[in-house]
Amino acid sequence: MSHHDEEIDAAGRADEFLQVFKKGAEFTQDLLKENERLRFRVVQLEETLKEKGHDTVDESPDAIELKKKIEVLEQEKEEILGQIKVVEEENQNFANRYIEIEEENNMLANLYIASYQLHSTLDFKEVLQIILEIVINLIGAEEFGVLLLDEKTNRLEPVASEGLVTSELPSVAVGEGIIGEAVHSGENYFIDSMEGYERDFEKPIVCIPLKIKEHVIGVIAIYKLFTQKDEFTNVDYELFTLLAGHAATAVFSSRMYSDSERKLSTIQGFIDLLTK
């Protein structure tokens, strides 16, 4: 093949390659157009879908009805929650009140038993023993004494005690010291603070006058409480008041009864002597 023929052949192949390249370029252009068209279509469809969906929730009558129902139910739920809160508070108040009433009931029952026991006998020694039991078991005193007024000497004399030796308790003149003053005034005495207190027979932590109306016949002087009892409760103050009245009448009646029994026995002795 000559040089001229070779040139013609090369030019033909270049044309062919150019044609193929042009076709490729056209095909790519078509693809880009199609892609743009499809993307536009996707955006269109998305917007339509969005609009259609929005319209369904907002405008359909069923949806409106349901929304209203939800609002009503939400409101009712809030009201019910409020009512539950109120009922819970009431329940708590009732529970607290129930405990208070139970405590009151128990206190009344204890007071009933104490007064019943005090008036169950006319034996002076038994009455004193019951007073000791009440002070131990209901008040929680470990060391205390009962002093009664001798109207002849106007002095208080110890007659019974718990945790102490009765004979070691002092005789106290009316109006003298804390005990004598409690008899004089007829008022209960309570120490301001039990902290650091050391037993002093002249200075009890509590002194309760035993009164029949305004007439004081003796006192209960407390010097020590149980270790587990570190303060007085409201029930204790009520018990002290009860003791002040019931113990006094029980002591007074039993003493009167013992005296009259003794006198009766003496008179009976005389009568027996005279009639024999």
Partner: peptide, 12 residues
């Protein structure tokens, strides 16, 4: 042994 305490417990 204390009749008063016994009564208190029994009553309760």
């Amino acid at each position: 042994d204390s009749p008063t305490m016994r009564q208190l417990i029994v009553f309760a």
